[in-house]
Amino acid sequence: MNPRADPDGEAEASGAGCAEAVVSAGPARPAARAIGVLAGFREPVVLVLLLIAFFTYISGKPLDGVLMVIVAVGLAWDAGRRARARGGVSDAGQAVGALELSLERGRAHGRWRLLGITGMLAGGAVYAGVVGSFSRYSWPATAGIIGLGTVVVLIGWHGPLRHRRVAGRLPLTGALAWAVVLVFGCLWELAALLLQPSITTGSYAHPTISTLTDPVLSTWPGRSVLLAAWLAFGWYLAER
Protein backbone atom coordinates (compact mmCIF):
# COMPACT_ATOMS: atom_id res chain seq x y z
CA MET A 1 0.00 0.00 0.00
CA ASN A 2 1.32 3.38 -0.84
CA PRO A 3 2.22 5.24 2.35
CA ARG A 4 0.85 8.71 1.97
CA ALA A 5 0.63 11.72 4.18
CA ASP A 6 -2.67 11.74 5.98
CA PRO A 7 -3.29 15.30 7.05
CA ASP A 8 -6.59 14.58 8.69
CA GLY A 9 -5.50 15.48 12.19
CA GLU A 10 -6.97 18.77 13.18
CA ALA A 11 -9.84 19.13 10.76
CA GLU A 12 -10.85 15.49 11.00
CA ALA A 13 -10.89 15.74 14.75
CA SER A 14 -13.31 18.61 14.58
CA GLY A 15 -15.36 16.97 11.83
CA ALA A 16 -15.75 13.68 13.63
CA GLY A 17 -16.08 15.22 17.05
CA CYS A 18 -19.76 14.39 17.20
CA ALA A 19 -19.00 10.75 16.60
CA GLU A 20 -16.32 10.78 19.28
CA ALA A 21 -18.71 12.26 21.76
CA VAL A 22 -21.03 9.34 21.27
CA VAL A 23 -18.60 6.48 21.07
CA SER A 24 -15.41 6.15 23.03
CA ALA A 25 -12.51 3.96 21.95
CA GLY A 26 -12.49 0.50 23.40
CA PRO A 27 -13.55 -3.05 22.70
CA ALA A 28 -15.93 -3.13 19.73
CA ARG A 29 -19.45 -4.08 20.80
CA PRO A 30 -22.11 -4.40 18.11
CA ALA A 31 -24.29 -1.70 19.65
CA ALA A 32 -21.39 0.72 20.06
CA ARG A 33 -20.25 -0.01 16.52
CA ALA A 34 -23.74 0.68 15.18
CA ILE A 35 -23.95 3.95 17.11
CA GLY A 36 -20.55 4.92 15.74
CA VAL A 37 -21.72 4.37 12.17
CA LEU A 38 -24.91 6.34 12.80
CA ALA A 39 -22.85 9.16 14.30
CA GLY A 40 -20.98 9.32 11.00
CA PHE A 41 -24.23 10.40 9.33
CA ARG A 42 -24.00 13.66 11.24
CA GLU A 43 -21.06 14.74 9.07
CA PRO A 44 -22.20 17.75 6.96
CA VAL A 45 -20.60 16.32 3.81
CA VAL A 46 -22.55 13.07 4.26
CA LEU A 47 -25.80 15.02 4.53
CA VAL A 48 -24.92 17.06 1.42
CA LEU A 49 -24.20 13.86 -0.53
CA LEU A 50 -27.54 12.38 0.56
CA LEU A 51 -29.32 15.56 -0.60
CA ILE A 52 -27.52 15.37 -3.96
CA ALA A 53 -28.56 11.71 -4.20
CA PHE A 54 -32.19 12.60 -3.55
CA PHE A 55 -32.37 15.44 -6.09
CA THR A 56 -30.42 13.43 -8.67
CA TYR A 57 -32.85 10.55 -8.23
CA ILE A 58 -35.99 12.64 -8.64
CA SER A 59 -34.52 14.42 -11.68
CA GLY A 60 -34.48 11.14 -13.57
CA LYS A 61 -30.97 9.81 -12.92
CA PRO A 62 -31.51 6.94 -10.48
CA LEU A 63 -28.10 5.36 -11.12
CA ASP A 64 -26.28 8.56 -10.13
CA GLY A 65 -28.48 8.77 -7.04
CA VAL A 66 -27.70 5.21 -5.98
CA LEU A 67 -23.96 5.82 -6.43
CA MET A 68 -24.17 8.96 -4.29
CA VAL A 69 -25.98 7.00 -1.57
CA ILE A 70 -23.29 4.30 -1.63
CA VAL A 71 -20.53 6.88 -1.19
CA ALA A 72 -22.45 8.73 1.54
CA VAL A 73 -23.01 5.52 3.53
CA GLY A 74 -19.38 4.49 3.04
CA LEU A 75 -18.18 7.89 4.22
CA ALA A 76 -20.48 7.79 7.26
CA TRP A 77 -19.24 4.32 8.15
CA ASP A 78 -15.64 5.42 7.72
CA ALA A 79 -16.12 8.57 9.84
CA GLY A 80 -17.72 6.52 12.61
CA ARG A 81 -15.01 3.86 12.46
CA ARG A 82 -12.22 6.45 12.57
CA ALA A 83 -13.83 8.18 15.52
CA ARG A 84 -13.80 4.85 17.38
CA ALA A 85 -10.19 4.14 16.47
CA ARG A 86 -8.94 7.57 17.48
CA GLY A 87 -7.92 6.28 20.89
CA GLY A 88 -4.88 4.57 19.30
CA VAL A 89 -1.91 6.21 17.60
CA SER A 90 -2.27 9.98 17.40
CA ASP A 91 -3.02 11.61 14.05
CA ALA A 92 0.01 13.88 14.43
CA GLY A 93 2.31 10.90 14.86
CA GLN A 94 0.77 9.17 11.88
CA ALA A 95 1.10 12.30 9.74
CA VAL A 96 4.77 12.84 10.62
CA GLY A 97 5.61 9.20 9.95
CA ALA A 98 3.77 9.24 6.67
CA LEU A 99 5.48 12.49 5.64
CA GLU A 100 8.96 11.07 6.33
CA LEU A 101 8.14 7.96 4.32
CA SER A 102 6.72 10.11 1.54
CA LEU A 103 9.85 12.30 1.31
CA GLU A 104 12.16 9.26 1.32
CA ARG A 105 10.04 7.65 -1.34
CA GLY A 106 10.09 10.86 -3.39
CA ARG A 107 13.89 11.00 -3.45
CA ALA A 108 14.27 7.33 -4.33
CA HIS A 109 11.71 7.32 -7.09
CA GLY A 110 12.06 10.73 -8.78
CA ARG A 111 12.93 9.16 -12.11
CA TRP A 112 10.02 6.72 -11.92
CA ARG A 113 7.73 9.64 -11.17
CA LEU A 114 8.58 11.24 -14.52
CA LEU A 115 7.90 7.97 -16.30
CA GLY A 116 4.67 7.59 -14.37
CA ILE A 117 3.49 11.08 -15.33
CA THR A 118 4.28 10.42 -18.99
CA GLY A 119 2.37 7.14 -18.83
CA MET A 120 -0.61 8.78 -17.15
CA LEU A 121 -0.73 11.57 -19.75
CA ALA A 122 -0.73 8.98 -22.53
CA GLY A 123 -3.34 6.89 -20.71
CA GLY A 124 -5.48 9.97 -20.13
CA ALA A 125 -5.35 10.90 -23.81
CA VAL A 126 -6.35 7.37 -24.81
CA TYR A 127 -9.16 7.37 -22.24
CA ALA A 128 -10.52 10.73 -23.45
CA GLY A 129 -10.33 9.59 -27.06
CA VAL A 130 -12.00 6.22 -26.49
CA VAL A 131 -14.72 7.26 -24.02
CA GLY A 132 -15.35 10.43 -26.05
CA SER A 133 -16.06 8.27 -29.09
CA PHE A 134 -19.12 6.82 -27.34
CA SER A 135 -22.33 8.80 -27.58
CA ARG A 136 -23.53 10.62 -24.48
CA TYR A 137 -25.63 8.68 -21.99
CA SER A 138 -24.75 5.37 -23.64
CA TRP A 139 -23.84 2.41 -21.44
CA PRO A 140 -20.18 2.25 -22.63
CA ALA A 141 -19.74 5.95 -21.75
CA THR A 142 -21.48 5.36 -18.42
CA ALA A 143 -19.17 2.44 -17.61
CA GLY A 144 -16.11 4.52 -18.49
CA ILE A 145 -17.16 7.42 -16.27
CA ILE A 146 -18.23 5.27 -13.32
CA GLY A 147 -15.06 3.16 -13.54
CA LEU A 148 -12.70 6.11 -13.57
CA GLY A 149 -14.69 8.08 -11.00
CA THR A 150 -14.61 5.12 -8.63
CA VAL A 151 -10.85 4.68 -9.04
CA VAL A 152 -10.09 8.36 -8.36
CA VAL A 153 -12.42 8.53 -5.34
CA LEU A 154 -10.86 5.36 -3.89
CA ILE A 155 -7.34 6.73 -4.48
CA GLY A 156 -8.27 10.03 -2.87
CA TRP A 157 -10.03 8.34 0.04
CA HIS A 158 -6.71 7.45 1.68
CA GLY A 159 -5.19 10.91 1.42
CA PRO A 160 -3.41 13.17 -1.06
CA LEU A 161 -1.00 11.52 -3.49
CA ARG A 162 1.82 13.71 -2.28
CA HIS A 163 2.36 15.90 0.70
CA ARG A 164 1.48 19.57 0.41
CA ARG A 165 2.21 22.24 2.95
CA VAL A 166 -1.15 23.52 4.14
CA ALA A 167 -1.23 27.25 4.77
CA GLY A 168 -2.42 28.37 8.18
CA ARG A 169 -5.78 29.98 8.70
CA LEU A 170 -7.14 31.38 5.44
CA PRO A 171 -7.84 35.13 5.34
CA LEU A 172 -11.50 35.48 6.23
CA THR A 173 -12.31 38.25 3.74
CA GLY A 174 -10.69 36.40 0.86
CA ALA A 175 -12.39 33.13 1.75
CA LEU A 176 -15.73 34.96 1.95
CA ALA A 177 -15.13 36.47 -1.50
CA TRP A 178 -14.65 32.97 -2.92
CA ALA A 179 -17.77 31.77 -1.14
CA VAL A 180 -19.84 34.64 -2.57
CA VAL A 181 -18.69 33.96 -6.15
CA LEU A 182 -19.14 30.17 -5.95
CA VAL A 183 -22.49 30.27 -4.16
CA PHE A 184 -23.75 32.88 -6.62
CA GLY A 185 -22.72 30.57 -9.46
CA CYS A 186 -24.62 27.64 -7.93
CA LEU A 187 -27.74 29.77 -7.33
CA TRP A 188 -27.60 31.16 -10.88
CA GLU A 189 -27.48 27.63 -12.29
CA LEU A 190 -30.28 26.53 -9.95
CA ALA A 191 -32.43 29.50 -11.01
CA ALA A 192 -31.94 28.60 -14.67
CA LEU A 193 -32.84 24.99 -13.90
CA LEU A 194 -36.05 25.96 -12.08
CA LEU A 195 -37.07 28.38 -14.86
CA GLN A 196 -37.03 25.57 -17.45
CA PRO A 197 -40.41 24.20 -18.59
CA SER A 198 -39.64 21.10 -16.53
CA ILE A 199 -36.63 19.77 -14.65
CA THR A 200 -35.71 17.49 -17.55
CA THR A 201 -36.50 19.85 -20.46
CA GLY A 202 -33.92 22.41 -21.54
CA SER A 203 -34.80 26.03 -22.17
CA TYR A 204 -33.28 28.51 -24.65
CA ALA A 205 -34.46 31.47 -22.60
CA HIS A 206 -32.92 30.17 -19.36
CA PRO A 207 -30.09 27.85 -20.36
CA THR A 208 -28.31 25.75 -17.75
CA ILE A 209 -24.64 24.90 -18.18
CA SER A 210 -25.73 21.49 -19.50
CA THR A 211 -27.87 23.13 -22.17
CA LEU A 212 -25.07 25.49 -23.17
CA THR A 213 -22.56 22.65 -23.51
CA ASP A 214 -24.90 20.38 -25.52
CA PRO A 215 -23.58 21.56 -28.94
CA VAL A 216 -19.98 20.89 -27.87
CA LEU A 217 -20.80 17.52 -26.31
CA SER A 218 -22.67 16.37 -29.40
CA THR A 219 -19.36 15.92 -31.26
CA TRP A 220 -16.61 13.37 -30.64
CA PRO A 221 -13.77 15.97 -30.43
CA GLY A 222 -15.83 18.12 -28.10
CA ARG A 223 -16.55 15.20 -25.78
CA SER A 224 -12.91 14.12 -25.80
CA VAL A 225 -11.61 17.60 -24.98
CA LEU A 226 -14.06 18.04 -22.09
CA LEU A 227 -13.32 14.52 -20.84
CA ALA A 228 -9.60 15.34 -20.85
CA ALA A 229 -10.29 18.51 -18.88
CA TRP A 230 -12.49 16.59 -16.42
CA LEU A 231 -9.79 13.96 -16.03
CA ALA A 232 -7.05 16.56 -15.48
CA PHE A 233 -9.14 18.34 -12.85
CA GLY A 234 -9.78 15.03 -11.08
CA TRP A 235 -6.07 14.31 -10.93
CA TYR A 236 -5.41 17.84 -9.69
CA LEU A 237 -7.91 17.25 -6.88
CA ALA A 238 -6.52 13.82 -6.01
CA GLU A 239 -3.13 15.45 -5.45
CA ARG A 240 -4.51 18.13 -3.13
Binding site: D8, V45, L67, M68, R136, Y137, S138, V153, R223, L237
Partner: peptide, 23 residues
Protein backbone atom coordinates in the same frame (compact mmCIF):
# COMPACT_ATOMS: atom_id res chain seq x y z
CA UNK B 1 -7.64 18.44 4.59
CA UNK B 2 -10.26 16.29 6.29
CA UNK B 3 -11.26 12.95 4.83
CA UNK B 4 -14.91 13.91 4.56
CA UNK B 5 -14.01 17.15 2.76
CA UNK B 6 -11.63 15.34 0.44
CA UNK B 7 -14.05 12.57 -0.46
CA UNK B 8 -16.93 15.04 -0.76
CA UNK B 9 -15.06 17.17 -3.30
CA UNK B 10 -13.84 14.14 -5.26
CA UNK B 11 -17.38 12.76 -5.39
CA UNK B 12 -18.62 16.15 -6.59
CA UNK B 13 -16.04 15.91 -9.37
CA UNK B 14 -17.19 12.38 -10.25
CA UNK B 15 -20.80 13.58 -10.23
CA UNK B 16 -19.96 16.22 -12.87
CA UNK B 17 -18.72 13.45 -15.16
CA UNK B 18 -21.82 11.38 -14.49
CA UNK B 19 -24.11 14.35 -15.08
CA UNK B 20 -22.67 15.25 -18.47
CA UNK B 21 -21.89 11.82 -19.89
CA UNK B 22 -23.50 8.93 -18.01
CA UNK B 23 -26.86 7.28 -18.51
Amino acid sequence: RSRTGRVGILVAWAWIGLHFFAH
